[in-house]
Design a protein around this nucleic acid. Sequence first.
DNA 1: ATCATAGTCGTCTGCCTGACGATAAACACT
DNA 2: AGTGTTTATCGTCAGGCAGACGACTATGAT
Lengths: 252, 252
Amino acid sequence: MPYDPSAFPPFAVTVDLVVLTVRRHALCALAVRRGEPPFQGRWALPGGFVRADEDLAQAAARELAEETGLRAHDPSVPAQDNGAHLEQLATYGDPKRDPRMRVVSVAHLALAPDLPAPRAGGDASNARWAPVDELLQQGGYGRDGEPVAPLAFDHAQILSDGVERARSKIEYSSLATAFCPTEFTVGELRRVYEAVWGVALDPRNFHRKVTGTPGFLVPTGGTTTRQGGRPAQLFRAGGATLLNPPMLRPEV
Amino acid sequence: MPYDPSAFPPFAVTVDLVVLTVRRHALCALAVRRGEPPFQGRWALPGGFVRADEDLAQAAARELAEETGLRAHDPSVPAQDNGAHLEQLATYGDPKRDPRMRVVSVAHLALAPDLPAPRAGGDASNARWAPVDELLQQGGYGRDGEPVAPLAFDHAQILSDGVERARSKIEYSSLATAFCPTEFTVGELRRVYEAVWGVALDPRNFHRKVTGTPGFLVPTGGTTTRQGGRPAQLFRAGGATLLNPPMLRPEV
DNA sequence: ATCATAGTCGTCTGCCTGACGATAAACACT
DNA sequence: AGTGTTTATCGTCAGGCAGACGACTATGAT
């Protein structure tokens, strides 16, 4: 095909973000309320246009910072604090996914520790952490009794893909620690797995597995009783990124 | 951010293909020679612009058919013959990746059985299957003694990501069968794993593993001696897509 | 003091893998 | 026909790891 600038159609390119966190034992995603049509008033994933001089990862990191104040974890700086994990998820380009024009969206997945209230342009009522089950259920009523509308555009599909990616990725990587604060206990880490997978795990076997995997956890020396019960050792995430053998997700 | 058509820059969107196959015990990728600048005369991955009314997967399937004659496997039709596996790989959007203009490329990964000669616009000299090691090595000389130039654009990165995806995906899925003809032997399947991973596997343990995994292989009843030696049973790919427990890749 | 809660250490059993011996069935020679 | 070579296939054994679960420890709440 010879090069002809008129031979290709112009696209708008956006990044959309699936920002996941664990709050109150539930896997939650960041949702923002749309202020203008289409889908005005509906919840959607945060996102925005990629700028002319911007890489895709930069655009995703910028949007993440704008929506949450989080800085993305630079993979070259292992021991960075309070940064979210950010990775490209997939790209969605159905010709009809945006009724206005042809938009290709490069979705990214961010995993963040539990945060204070979100902010969207300073307006808290237009951004919230919602349990992913609630965001993904079609119709019906949420836990507060209000009717639930499906997410705008194809964002339910994107969110679903992001959740699936997170579920499988914590199996074979140490990424579950991205949901935890800098220092955390084995029990807190276990509750992350339980929230993301939606299952109950045996505390004894889990403890044996994570403390026995070299490089996964580094003890800080401190202890805490913030969960009640016997004081628990505090750990930081170790240098290992890949878990081998992986953490096994129970059947069904 | 209010909607303003002038607020976003226009992008060109392309699909690039990493088409992998196993030939003569080596993992090979399809490369095409560029006929015009930039990178004129250099090898590149096949690809092209996404059309105005086309989904990304459609565009990838169209390019795959144009370059190889392969039809992409429709995931909803399990027992389809001679179709290639096609999946989205990742999206590359560095502002400077194409010197002409801002191009975002949605790379796709295709796994195909060994094919006759490739064709690129009917001209065989402009398309070839090349061992991925050869395409990825920087400079130096290929096996035929000719100097090796790096792939055009960021295609070395894309190819490298595609190979890594294929290597990890055959661990926990039955995708290795996508490299095989419709009917194949356990030994042929083992040689696929050996070529993709670049390791030697124990034939006895491999045989035990694949024949013992329910749904992976279905015996057709026939046998063949095309590999020499004792006749081997022929199999077809079974319905299972996920391998649990996975096939373990040897260390190092 | 007693209870509830959470954390930590052990034990046992079964499954899976890696290492490897042994046999089987073809073909290519002599 | 016999011998060697090649590939396929079955078996055995030991070690590692996961699931199930018992036991004990150290807090705070009542």
